[in-house]
Every structure is written in C-alpha cells, then in structure tokens.
Design a protein around this nucleic acid. Structure first.
Length: 218
DNA sequence: TGCCAGGCCGGGT
DNA sequence: ACCCGGCATGGC
C-alpha cells in the first residue's frame, strides 16, 4: 500500500465525499479557477454572484465587457485588476479557439490543450489543471499550496520540489481516474483548511497525524 | 488586530 | 534557472 493511497483513505474516512468543484457549469468552474488564485473561496462566490446578477457569467458577455467594467464586478475576489485582465485573456482564448464553447475545448487533445492553456496570460499550472480536471473532466492531478504543505510537512516530498515533480508523484502512483483525482484534491483542500494552515497547524486532531509511520506532527 | 486565503507575472540577479 | 515584490478583498 503506497503512502498516497493511505493518505487518500484517511482523508476520505475523516471527511467523506466533497462534491467538487463548487460550481454549476464548466464555464463557471473555469472562471472560479482564475478568481480563486491565492484567494479565499468565499470571496470568489461573491464575485461570481455579482456576475450572475448582471447576467454576465457567459463568454459572450464578458468578451464584450471592458476590463474596467469586469474588474468592478469581481471586486470581492481581490486582485480585481489583474484578475479582470486574466479572465479576459482566458475568454479571448476560449472565443478565438473554440467559439466560446467549453464543450469544444473539451474535445482537444489533453496534452496539447494543457500546453496551450499555459500560454494564456494568468493561467499557470494549478489553474490550468483545475480547469482540465474539474471543468473538462480530464484525468489530471491538481497540486495546490495545501497539497505541497501537507506532503512536505510529513517529509514525503521536499517542499522545494516543483509543481511538475509533485504532480508526477501522483500520476505515477495512482490510477488515472477523474473521480479519484477530483475527490483527492478536494480532500487536501479540506484537511488543509481545517488543520494545515500556514502558521499554527492543528495537528492533534488531524487525520494525517503520523501518516506513514512518521512521527512528524508539525 | 494582524493573519490568512484553492497563484501568477514580470523584472532582476 | 531561480528569487522576489506586487497584486487586494473579506472573514476570523
């Protein structure tokens, strides 16, 4: 039994299914993936509510909107100027390449699409992979700050390792399964929010305490 | 009250 | 190839 399997089972036992991504449509999920960069999800929900209220949660509408107007709508998500620009960049990509259709984007070859997403201004590896997994249901493991923190604090992976190195570990060990990857990453976020904050982790009750026979609890 | 949140870019070594 | 400052709101 690999340690990554053990971690998954512990987390699932502790928390159960997480029902991710919290969003109604592939497009909404993609928008959320950009808005949640280094930002509390609650703030993202407010920004998405604003867009919905204005009938602006669509590629066509945002495509025609000015960056300034968009920024004012997404203000609660923080970094609203850079995120407005990034959202526009993504939607230009979506409109120009796929006539605004996430379904058409989904038909693209996975590796090719990932490379193209990474060329879009404002889309880095985590945002790209979040879109691929949660919006387009491609079997790609998402690495985020919580995942890195949990694995490095337990001495499973050095914290200096790159995004791709963390991801390769999951890809090499786990079955390439969308449902599994979906649940696993969501569980990392859940345990991270609850027990593994940047400072002052609360290891006493953490389901990952002493995982893999390690005595590390910090 | 300060700390924190589901990153990424651009400029400088 | 790294390293770092900048970006910003809202909840606890």
């Amino acid at each position: 039994m690999n340690i990554l399997h053990e971690i998954y089972h512990r987390l699932f036992e502790a928390f159960g299914p997480q029902h991710w991504w919290p969003g109604d449509t592939p497009f909404e999920i993609a928008v959320g993936a950009i808005l949640t960069q280094n930002t509390n999800w609650g703030n993202v929900e407010k920004a998405i509510r604003n867009l919905k209220r204005q009938g602006a949660l669509s590629a066509k509408v945002i495509h025609k909107m000015s960056v300034k107007e968009l920024a004012s709508q997404i203000r609660p998500a923080g970094y609203f100027n850079v995120k407005a620009k990034r959202l526009k960049s993504f939607i230009d990509f979506l409109v120009d390449g796929y006539r605004g259709s996430m379904k058409r984007m989904r038909d693209e070859d996975l590796n090719h699409l990932r490379e193209k997403l990474l060329q879009v201004n404002g889309i880095g590896p985590e945002t790209a992979d979040s879109m691929l997994l949660y919006s387009l249901e491609k079997p790609v493991f998402v690495i985020d700050a919580y995942t890195k923190r949990a694995l490095s604090r337990h001495n499973i992976v050095g914290k200096e390792k790159s995004y791709d190195e963390f991801q390769e570990l999951f890809h090499s060990v786990l079955k390439r399964d969308v449902k599994l990857f979906n649940e696993y990453h969501a569980l990392f976020v859940r345990v991270g929010k609850t027990y593994c904050k940047r400072q002052r982790p609360l290891c006493d009750q953490c389901p990952l305490r002493k995982v893999g026979n390690l005595q590390v609890t910090h």
